[in-house]
Design a protein around this nucleic acid. Structure first.
Lengths: 203, 203
DNA sequence: TTGCTAAACGGAACCATGTTCCGTATCGTC
DNA sequence: GACGATACGGAACATGGTTCCGTTTAGCAA
């Protein structure tokens, strides 16, 4: 670093017009395809829908993770931003935490297949993992800390673990009327509560 | 039924010796391959390890679900059988439930990829779904009912939903030191507890 | 023992999908 | 208008599931 006079944002010399156009078209096509067929929709389908070749697709989005991040960036940012707001608005930190987890769960559930892919240990999804962790773990951690400080929950819950758990609960939940991932996520948050004496009775 | 004089177990006229031998060999090979590479190990690999062609594999196990059920049948049965035993042995139904859920979680976690596949809505895994549900949901239901009867948890929890949730928590948990699915499953069970007055404070 | 038939086998072949590669087309500039 | 860099398109390759059918073999009976 610091070897050139260029600022850290200069190195991108502005892409060609057709490239920018295609990227936008692919993003639209992918968003539509995700809604219709889930985030695992075949690459060829997205490319065909956008009217480009698969080579073009891969040039813009080297891994599926890049595409997914690009499609959902806005919504993830919104979710992250909601944390502090809820903390300020709700009556207690625990309520804020519960609401925020609910928000996160709803986001995952409505993106068919996102939760599954989020838990994949495939190296190709490293980027996706990292993005979600970077943006959401700190927010979750803040909510957890506030609830601990208020004496509402036991300390020691890793925010990463909690989010990963909620992700697991939301995976593959499509259209099963007997399965309500959001309710279970609520159970998880309820389980964090400081133990009310009675519970520890028989260790 | 009842159209022939044969009892309900007669219709299988005993397979040829080589067929029985191959089935056993495949089962062993699959078990070993599952341990080594997870339940999604390629069919070709299993067949090669068993020293048979893929055609032979498919004749014995038309779907991967059939294979998985065959490999894990004993352990699933053991898990089902453990329910009533725990209910009798532990001090309270809630403790029995917690222990049993822990057992189930441990089973899933140690079978790399099983939990993932269990939640797949792929039609090919219908058999697997059905088997797990048939064997384990009633046991879980019994534990839940006992805990409700003892006033330890709120009524209304669908055992199917709970098991599915635990399955979700256990999916893709391989080798992440920061993620402890069994602990989270415990949180879920803790969250079921009858609310101790304080919790509902601000509904 | 030999011959016969149904059962079982093996693996080539086919399909779907992800991914790479490179000849061709296009943009932006001189 | 010409030229070089950038981007495009899709054929080609890799992987893995699944099917199909010609060949082999177990089991039985003469």
């Amino acid at each position: 670093m610091a070897s050139g006079g260029n600022g850290p944002d200069a190195p991108a010399p502005r892409k060609r017009a057709d490239a920018r156009r295609n990227e936008a078209t692919l993003l639209d096509a992918a968003a539509a395809a995700f809604v219709e067929s889930g985030v695992n929709v075949p690459v060829r389908d997205i490319a065909a829908r956008a009217g480009v070749g698969v080579g073009t697709f891969y040039r813009h989005f080297p891994t599926r993770a890049d595409l997914i991040v690009a499609v959902y960036r806005h919504q993830v940012e919104a979710c992250a931003a909601a944390g502090p707001v809820l903390l300020a608005d709700r009556e207690s930190p625990h309520q804020a935490l519960a609401s925020w987890i609910g928000l996160f769960a709803d986001f995952l559930v409505t993106k068919h297949g996102l939760a599954d892919v989020l838990r994949s240990d495939d190296a190709a999804f490293q980027t996706l993992h990292a993005y979600f962790i970077d943006r959401l773990v700190p927010v979750c951690g803040q909510l957890l800390e506030a609830a601990v400080a208020a004496g509402e929950i036991r300390p020691g819950q890793d925010p990463y673990e909690l989010l990963r758990g909620v992700g697991g609960l939301c995976a593959g939940a499509d259209g099963d009327p007997r399965y309500n991932p959001r309710r279970l996520a609520g159970l998880l948050v309820a389980g964090l509560r400081a133990e009310p004496a009675q519970a520890r009775a028989a260790g």
